[in-house]
Design a protein around this nucleic acid. Sequence first.
DNA 1: TCTAATACTTCGTGATACGATGTATTACGC
DNA 2: GCGTAATACATCGTATCACGAAGTATTAGA
Lengths: 106, 106
Amino acid sequence: MDIQLKRGLLDVCVLAAIKNEESYGYKMLKDMKPYLEMSESTLYTILKRLELSKLLTVRTAEHGGRLRKYYKITPAGLARIEDFKSEWREVMSIYRFVTKEDGACE
Amino acid sequence: MDIQLKRGLLDVCVLAAIKNEESYGYKMLKDMKPYLEMSESTLYTILKRLELSKLLTVRTAEHGGRLRKYYKITPAGLARIEDFKSEWREVMSIYRFVTKEDGACE
DNA sequence: TCTAATACTTCGTGATACGATGTATTACGC
DNA sequence: GCGTAATACATCGTATCACGAAGTATTAGA
């Protein structure tokens, strides 16, 4: 899909991927894949950004002899999702503006 | 609204503003204002980009002793709007992913 | 032993929205 | 006649950001 359109969805989609339970990068990528594909470099950049914004926290744990980073959403992260929902009204209003069939004389 | 979310809507919103009749920058800005606000520099950058992509054409005409640039959508521009509509399905699917209330046990 | 999958990182690049600033004309109030 | 706002468009620099490419390392399977 169009990159620009994607941009507004990426961050919030990553947050949604850990909304219910903590997860790690590779798994998130696979969970999101049916909805939204992103490259690994993009995901890890986003995860770092979200951590800096305190929308999620990270812990490192060993799994099968290898280190894995688990990401957990914070209350601020959940609030970010709620903000997104609120903004969606505006988005839909723009969508209607773009797609409405007029024609003052139609 | 969130800049990232805006990004995917800007180009197509500008195209929508001239979907039915040609218009000029300043007027477009006012027409779009109830839906989506953007700065002048952003609009003129977008108009130039859309012209280069041949999604609209420009003609310069005098109006009240002053030059004005009138923008007119091309068939490719109308097609761009149709593409946007198609992509909206994907967008809505992501929206549902982000907002769904689960809870494996709900 | 070679390859694929898992898992995360870093770097450079190109796209782009925006504020700041500039130019120029018209319209209006005082 | 003078200042200000509105009209109308343009340019420049900056910060953000998604991505491809490439790298590091381990494990599993053929």
